[in-house]
Simulated assay, not measured.
Amino acid sequence: MTTHTRTSPPALATLRERLWTALEARDEAAAGAAVLGAHDAGTSVEDLLLDVIGPVQARVGVEWATGRIGVAQEHAVTAIQDRVIAALAHRTPSLPAPGGPGGVPESGAAPRRVTVACVDGEWHALPARLLAEVLRGRGFLVDYLGAHVPTPHLIAHLHQTGGDAVALSASLPLRLPTAHAAVTAVQAIGIPVLVGGAAFGPDGRYARLLGADGWAPDARAAATLLADGPRRPENPLRDPAGELPHLSDQEYTLVTRSRTQLIRHVLRELEGAFPAMAAYTERQRERTAEDIAHIVDFLAASLYADDADLFTRFVTWTAGILRARGVPAHALAAALDLLTDAQRDFPRARSHLVAGRRALTRVPAPSAPGSPS
C-alpha cells in the first residue's frame, strides 16, 4: 500500500508545469500520467487536487481573460482537468464518516452528509468539485450537484435527502443576489450553509453580509469548518436581521433593469470619445460590448453589497487585462466617465463609479520594452 505524505513545494511546482504543458497541448494522456504518476509516487490525492490541479485551473482562467487562449480551448482544458479529477476520485478509499450509530453524528463530529453545489448562474464548477472530492477523502458523505443549481431544485433535493450542511460555491460577485436567495432558502428549512469562492470577497465579507453560517477561504479550511460545524443558531457570521436596508433606495433594481440600455448607450457614446474604435474589427467591437456589460454587472453587484471596493477591485483587474490585450487605459476611463454621466440620478452608483475611476490612476503604467518589471 502506497504511503502518502505532504509533497515539497518545489516538487509540486514542477508537477504543475508538467500538467500545464500537457493541457496546453490538449494531451489528456500526458495530463493523466503526470497526476496519477505523482499519486503512485506518494503525493496525496488532496495535495494533487488543491496544490496542482486547482492552481493550474486558475492559470487557465488568467490565460483566457487575457485573450491568450479562446473559449473553446478553455473548455477543452477544463474538461481534461475534470476527467483527471474523476480518475483520482476512483483512487480515494471509502472511509466511514465520523458519527455515531445509525448514521447520526455524535456531538462535535463532522456532518455525515454535505451537499456541495454552485449557486444559480455559476458555471465555474471546478472549485466546488475539488471541495467535494476533498470532503469525500476525509470521510464525509457528499452529494455533489455541480454547476448552476437553481435554488428551488436545491431545496427539493434537500427535502428528499436531508443532510447536515450545505456548501455553496460562487466565483463571481455577480452571483451575490442568487447566493443570498439560496442561503436564506436553505436556512429556512433548518440546514446550515457554508459558502466559499471569490464571489464572497477576499476576507469573506459578503458571506457575513448575506448571513451565511460560515465562510472558508479554501477547501482545506472548508473541510475543517465542516468537521466542527457549522451549527445553527450559534453562528458569529449570522446577521439576525437577514436584510439589506441599503437596497431600499432601488438603485440596484433600477441599474439591473436598465442594463441593456446602459450598455448600448455607453457603446454608442464611446465611439465618439474613443476614435480608435472606428478601426475595430467586428470581434473587437464584440469584446468591447462584453467589457461594458461586465462593468455594468459589477456596478450592480457593488450596489447589492453596498461596497464600492468590490467595483474598484474589478476595475483595476480589468485595467490589467485590457492592457494585456493591448487596449489603452484611457478607453476604460472613457467608458467609466460615460457611465457616470448616465447615473446622475443615482448617488450610490455615481459614488462607486467615481471610486473606480479614481482607482485607475493608481494602476501602474506598463513597463517599457526591455525594462525590469
Rank of each mutant, 00 (worst) to 15 (best):
S248C: 07
D249G: 12
R232G: 12
A227C: 04
Q187R: 15
S248V: 12
A199K: 01
A212D: 02
G229I: 04
E251Q: 11
D213P: 06
R205C: 14
D203F: 08
A241Y: 03
S171N: 09
A227F: 04
P202R: 15
P240A: 11
G214F: 04
D228M: 09
A219P: 07
R208D: 11
V195S: 00
A221I: 10
T178Q: 01
G201P: 05
P240F: 03
A199L: 10
P217T: 12
A199N: 01
L237K: 05
P240V: 06
E251H: 05
D213K: 10
D164G: 15
Y206I: 13
L168I: 09
A199T: 02
F200Q: 04
R231I: 13
I191Y: 05
A170M: 14
G204L: 12
A182M: 12
Q187N: 15
D213W: 08
P217Y: 11
Y252G: 06
A185S: 06
L168C: 08
A165I: 02
A179P: 00
A198D: 09
N235M: 07
A198F: 06
A223N: 05
A207W: 03
Y252F: 15
G201Y: 02
T253E: 10
L209A: 11
V195E: 00
G201D: 03
A198I: 06
L210G: 01
S248M: 08
L254D: 05
R231H: 14
V166W: 04
R231T: 13
D203N: 13
N235C: 15
G197M: 07
D239L: 12
T224P: 03
R231C: 10
R220D: 14
P177W: 07
T256R: 14
